[in-house]
Design a protein around this nucleic acid. Structure first.
Lengths: 344, 344
DNA sequence: CTTTAGCACTCTGACGGGACGAGTGCTAAC
DNA sequence: GTTAGCACTCGTCCCGTCAGAGTGCTAAAG
């Protein structure tokens, strides 16, 4: 692949940019004017023919211009693209919209909106994976005759409560005891570590027949069960995709939206981006999911305390303005990280 | 309007049903076969001409069949419609999917999914209006140096927490005092009543300079502020609408989806249904919102302890199977009410 | 007076051909 | 290596035609 001549590269770049701009197959004539090289259309045609040979462009039909293929886009984003640095006012604006006072869920929602607003495409942000976060404390409050409210504090920004149905009534004092016991045992530990120890203790304690501890542990187990939600994401700005000419067909659009509802597959795809540091791009069928056929996905992971805990990105047509979208996704990831890490 | 002859009614009914069934303008020939009356197409045409005069049907173009107008639909649903009673197995299935263990938010989400799944249209459920519900208790927990977690228990199913940023650190003991004080004062009272008393006390207490009480009240005020979210709704199954032939145009579809995102207008519409007991129907432009032009909305309010606290319903094309949708909406409202009222 | 048959009329949608424009590939000349 | 010229191929747009569906009207039958 590296044996593309400089000229061929320039032309592929010009062609792709042009096609991204106005969505029409690009002919040799416009390319001659557009590319800056002082060449006649005929020469251009020769070079383009080579590109076609290599599978980087193709023509939709005999006498139309050329359109980048998936490989063409790949080369374009990997080696030809000149990303526009984000101007500072933009960064400021982004930062401002993600004020740090909100809780995690809010932040994620806002980040998603932000991405979709700024790119005019669909924004997607996974909820932070909390299984590696530590348990700060647990509280139990009596709610009614046979209901107990469990409050799980994960960190400064993340609190979850769940309602437990109990076999009998528990008094405030009893519950307080439970809380104290559990906090002494588990506070500060990782959630999955807690889970593990919990099960071990549960087995052991059953044998020693310490009713109170057993109950406390069972309760804790229940809470963790409900708290350990599967991963999920927040999507925003799907309607933006309806403006895109590629999806003028309702059938296509429907497929896409149904994929969004399914979540499983999209999540699988997003999971692949977790390892990769920095911006990652899936173009069209590269994703392996054919409902994202004419879509590209631009993602970046975000971290808390150095650990990657989620992914955010933008979904749009393959024909999207990568040079604009990439820095935006990148910046948003950094800003979200900053917002999540701020401990004020 | 009541001066429709029996025959005209029968024909309008047959025509509407037929049109709902297959979406094509209905001609006199099919109507002659379909309506059960033993009349020739020619006779039918005369009657239909009268209906057109009355504005109940219209033809899309000169030599097409007829289509019901909004007024036509109105007459149809108000006086001609024979709603199918829901068979019991269906009711059972509905009940089952709304198990009562979930919390309010979950229930609402599930109800919405249910509506959309069963009707194959879009389901919509407003979140319960909680401003008339009573405050069961308040708890404050220290979270970190200058953060306090406030837990607001509204009732057995509804717990909210919010994180307060405080001016200085408060100890567990202090916070416990606050909780006790507030619970003594306000537990069991309506939320807006609490709010009112709170403001009054706040003024008074400032003068007496009781620092502790003042702080407690201020905190409570903050919590109430965050807890009193504006009304909102949960929508499900929008993708179902993409299968509907009426919305084959992406532009239309987009308008509709953007209206869903706006929420304000839809909420305004739903609010109108709160007063009305039982199922209410908006057909097409009747709603007054032109983004719902070719849509109908079938709603029913749901209650808790006798008070209407929300609305649920279905959004679909005017050409929807009312006789099926109406009982489903009705039943779902009852089932949701049962689920919300169960106090086990 | 109501119902019906017959008929002319109108409109839509599908099909097909011709003109046009865009763009290519090839060849031969620079 | 580059370019101009030219024949060729498609896709699109614009009719004109034709069949089908359904109407409105009129005149006859019940």
């Amino acid at each position: 692949m590296a044996e593309l001549t400089e000229r061929a590269q320039t032309l592929l770049k010009a062609l792709t940019e042009r096609y991204i701009r106005d969505g029409q197959p690009v002919g040799s004539r416009v390319l001659a004017r557009d590319a800056g090289l002082n060449l006649s259309p005929a020469t251009i045609r020769n070079v383009i023919a080579d590109l076609e040979e290599l599978g980087l462009v193709r023509s939709p039909h005999t006498s139309a211009g050329r359109v980048p293929t998936v490989s063409g886009y790949r080369v374009f984003v990997d080696t030809l693209l000149s990303v526009q640095p984000l101007d500072n006012s933009m960064v400021g604006a982004l930062k401002q919209s993600l004020d740090t006072t909100a809780d995690t869920k809010d932040l994620v929602q806002k980040a998603s909106n932000l991405l979709s607003d700024v790119t005019r495409l669909a924004g997607i942000v996974t909820l932070p994976q909390r299984k590696h976060s530590s348990l700060q404390r647990v509280e139990f409050l009596p709610l009614s005759e046979k209901k107990v409210l469990a409050v799980l504090v994960l960190d400064d920004k993340e609190v979850r409560n769940s309602i437990l149905n109990t076999a009998r009534h528990y008094s405030s004092a009893e519950l307080q005891q439970f809380s104290n016991f559990l906090n002494a045992q588990f506070a500060g530990k990782d959630l999955d570590e807690v889970r593990e120890k919990l099960l071990a203790e549960l087995r052991e304690t059953r044998e020693t027949l310490d009713r109170m501890m057993a109950t406390a542990l069972e309760m804790a187990d229940q809470v963790l069960g409900t708290a350990e939600q599967g991963s999920d994401y927040v999507l925003a700005g799907q309607t933006n995709l309806m403006g895109v000419t590629e999806f003028c067909d309702v059938g296509r659009l429907r497929q896409l939206f149904e994929a969004f509802n399914e979540k499983k597959e999209i999540l699988g795809l997003l999971d692949q981006c977790v390892e990769n540091e920095g911006v990652q791009i899936f173009i069209g069928e590269e994703s392996g999911y054919q409902m994202l056929d004419e879509c590209s996905l631009v993602t970046a992971p975000y971290t808390v305390k150095g650990k990657v805990i989620g992914v955010l990105g933008v979904i749009g047509p393959t024909r999207m303005a990568y040079e604009r979208v990439i820095p935006i996704v990148d910046a948003t990831a950094r800003i979200l990280r900053a917002a999540l890490n701020s401990q004020d």
